[in-house]
């Protein structure tokens, strides 16, 4: 194994073209995989553009090298209720949040991710450098394994909106891999549901936007508390996990969904 310490994005891109190259962000995911087979390790910690957090012009941009802890901290300064403050601020543990990077997490896409659901709900775009230099939508990136090959996650960005937010991580203990997560963003206007986004992760599809739930509630009276049979609106894509069977997790998700809707639409503390 040989280590390289580039200082610029261009230098990283040069490395990406070479065989047997592995990018090292925080390293936590690498240590769970086949580390010894990596021939060229490219450390990203010295590449300043990857560590930038920029909030301007109604858009937030987070560099791929920003850690979970830093992202939660910086976003929390301006919006303590930001969905990423809730999801990333409680992910894994304090020392791990200081190492896990956004770029590494987006690339690895673990089923227990606390990042993918909120990004999908926020309508995030990902800027890639390397073999596929482009800005792509989160959904497109998740669907295409080709985009991940030979790419560096330079940054991700999403529009700034003031949302009521709710996040649920289905875990057995605080420090546990989530069986599924539910992300909800909500806005209302004149007592009506103006905008609702619901995203589920941890199923066989990894990340799914629950359009059926959104469509049922969009535009209706926010005071209305009868949500109907929410479980029937959930997908059949739950999978068995150590936390419970697929059908059990689907039922739990329905309860979590209703709880989230009541919290958001009732205006209670989320």
């Amino acid at each position: 194994m040989e280590w390289f310490f580039p200082k610029t994005v261009d230098e990283v891109v040069e490395h990406l073209g070479k065989e047997d190259t592995v990018l090292h962000g925080g390293g936590t995911m690498l240590l769970r995989s086949k580390l010894r087979s990596s021939g060229r390790m490219v450390d990203l910690s010295g590449v300043e553009p990857l560590k930038q957090v920029i909030m301007e012009g109604g858009t937030t941009s987070l560099g791929g090298g920003v850690t979970y802890a830093e992202a939660a901290h910086r976003l929390g300064e301006s919006d303590p209720e930001h969905i990423l403050v809730k999801s990333l601020g409680g992910a894994a543990s304090t020392p791990l949040r200081n190492r896990i990077t956004l770029g590494g997490s987006i690339m690895a896409q673990p089923f227990w991710s606390d990042l993918l659901g909120p990004l999908m709900a926020l309508g995030a775009e990902i800027r890639l450098e390397g073999a596929h230099s482009q800005v792509c939508e989160m959904g497109e990136f998740l669907r295409s394994s080709e985009l991940r090959s030979g790419s560096l996650v330079h940054s991700l960005r999403f529009p700034f909106h003031s949302w009521r937010t709710w996040y649920h991580r289905e875990v057995r203990t605080a420090f546990d891999y989530a069986a599924f997560t539910l992300t909800m963003l909500y806005r209302q206007e004149r007592g009506m549901v103006k905008d609702l986004r619901v995203v589920l992760t941890g199923t066989s599809k990894k990340v799914e936007r629950l359009l059926s739930v959104e469509e049922r509630l969009q535009g209706r009276d926010a005071e209305e508390r009868d949500f109907g049979n929410l479980e029937a609106l959930l997908p059949e894509t739950f999978v068995d996990r150590p936390h419970g069977s697929a059908s059990y997790l689907r039922s739990v998700a329905a309860v979590a969904l209703e709880r989230g809707l009541r919290t958001l639409m009732g205006g209670d503390a989320a």
């Binding site: 090292h24 240590l31 304090t94 020392p95 791990l96 420090f175």
Partner: peptide, 21 residues
Amino acid sequence: GMCGSCCVLLEEKLVNSCQVL
């Protein structure tokens, strides 16, 4: 990276040293 007994400060940030190359 689960138990925290190997924690050190790296640039004044708490990290699990078992999870740092």
